[in-house]
Design a protein around this nucleic acid. Structure first.
Lengths: 121, 121
DNA sequence: CTCAAAATCAACCGAATGGTTGAATAAGCG
DNA sequence: CGCTTATTCAACCATTCGGTTGATTTTGAG
């Protein structure tokens, strides 16, 4: 009946299973970014980040728009909806503990390996 | 600060990225099941299902309790909470469209390959 | 036009996935 | 005890994954 839905969940969950990609999404929560800037805080090659970005794009979690010679990455949080709804069906997790999320976000930004993130500490 | 949380998300999202494993979780939503019964509707070996179950167990999404010679699998939906909260932080997906979920569940049960489910073609 | 920057491509690598089969272990049954 | 059922283990296989490096393409800037 919904043959497409299952594979959509496949790609979204798979995309979210990698910490680098989750970090990228977290960064994009603050603002749209160019590929080079996305890559900057990580200790891996630009090509590696480029691959992560295409995975996120294929999952629909970000969109990439080329303006001039730089490609801008923009969060597309709606792509998480199906997956989120699916999970919610397994138990009514209390209506979104935003506090906990904020705290987690902070800690995750701290986890981004090197430079540029220097808020607190 | 939360060094463990990130890898917890890794394993939970990775576990959810496979359609067979999501089907298993959906089945366990109805009732606890023995390994052999979990395996029955799928067109793959028991050993393969056994592996899927250990992955789900490591992710904390199910618990396996051996009573006699059969091992019972029980859903542990709380393991989804962290992941669910994480995703919710990216947008307030409307407060759980339970209807949509029910419909999707039905279609996903139809997707379980072989026997036992035979509604519509 | 020339050069440097932004990003991807292509080939390669080691490790992890998802599956198989056949043997091994464990426990209830007659 | 001896058989059968339930489940896992072990070895193997093909494919995918996450990363690397070096070359290539595209485009803005001087």
């Amino acid at each position: 009946m919904c043959p497409k839905m299952s594979s959509e969940l496949d790609t979204v969950f798979a995309a979210l299973a990698d910490p680098t990609r989750r970090s990228i999404l977290t960064m994009l929560l603050e603002d749209d970014m160019a590929v080079t800037d996305v890559a900057e805080p990580f200790e891996m090659s630009l090509a590696a980040i480029s691959k992560h970005l295409t995975i996120l794009t294929r999952a629909g979690l970000i969109a990439q728009e080329k303006r001039g010679r730089v490609k801008w990455c923009k969060l597309q949080p709606d792509a998480m909806r199906a997956a989120s709804v699916w999970m919610q069906g397994f138990g009514q997790f209390e209506p979104v503990n935003l506090d906990a999320f904020e705290r987690f976000l902070a800690s995750e930004l701290d986890d981004v390996p090197s430079a540029t993130r220097n808020s607190e500490v």
